[in-house]
């Protein structure tokens, strides 16, 4: 069994002062080394993370969720992480499900484990979001040629080697599709694990609108041209 501190939980956060405290409280600091990447938030996100006793990395300017995630992953790899879990700051994910994500990695059955709300469960998911995510799955199957049930789920776990090998250029939301592309390119062994995603009024207001999916698809496709 790996030493607990070698499991890093990377949390990209932007303007999450209202929700980050609860998210960090749900994570056991004795089990995981938590890293919050504050993506240039103008609010108290950084101070809340700092006072929670976790690692805080602050982008001096806002660069997007994908950029923040990559910063956290790079930091975790440089610090000697054996396993890296990516986790949302807004309380949509359930920290009690982290062991289930890590299990296939610890058993050597996968290089990267993807959380799936469609084989797990969702709470209060609007139908428009359901439809958008299903279209995203179809898009990914056509473009990236990878058969997954959930494409834009930020709840994942990966080994150190897989994390170090990922080449991510997408700074904004298209990074989720780019990670799937990278899994295919690098021929990483992947598994999907059921997870729970909880939607609330707060997270829906702050999250991406369903129309933003078009912009994300465009960013992903154009980013592929300029690798």
């Amino acid at each position: 069994m790996t030493h607990p501190s070698a499991i890093y939980v990377v949390i990209p956060a932007y303007k999450e002062a209202a929700r980050l405290g609860l998210t960090l409280a749900s994570l056991d600091k004795n089990l995981y080394t938590v890293v919050v990447v504050d993506d240039g938030s103008p609010d108290a996100t950084r101070a809340i993370a700092y006072n929670a006793g976790v690692w805080v990395i602050r982008h001096p300017i806002n660069r997007g969720q994908g950029a923040a995630l990559k910063t956290g992953i790079d930091f975790a790899v440089a610090q000697g992480a054996d396993y890296i879990v990516t986790f949302d700051a807004d309380g949509q994910h359930d920290a009690r499900e982290i062991p289930a994500l890590l299990q296939p990695l610890l058993e050597g059955r996968a290089d990267i484990v993807l959380g799936s709300r469609f084989i797990g469960k969702t709470i209060n998911m609007p139908w428009s979001r359901y439809l958008t995510l299903k279209l995203a799955v179809l898009f990914t199957r056509i473009v990236s040629q990878i058969h997954v049930s959930d494409t834009h789920n930020g709840f994942r776990a990966m080994t150190r080697d897989a994390a170090a090998a990922l080449v991510l250029h997408q700074d904004r939301m298209a990074h989720a599709s780019e990670i799937l592309d990278e899994i295919q390119r690098l021929k990483l062994r992947y598994l999907e694990v059921p997870v729970t995603i909880r939607y609330s009024q707060d997270t829906m207001e702050k999250g991406q609108s369903s129309l933003a999916a078009v912009r994300i698809a465009w960013q992903f496709l154009i980013g592929r041209l300029f690798k």
């Binding site: 990447v37 690692w55 805080v56 602050r58 982008h59 300017i61 950029a67 990559k70 910063t71 440089a78």
Partner: peptide
């Protein structure tokens, strides 16, 4: 930005 941020991790 990433390089600056990581060098100033706290």
């Amino acid at each position: 930005t990433r390089s600056i941020a990581i060098s100033q991790a706290s």
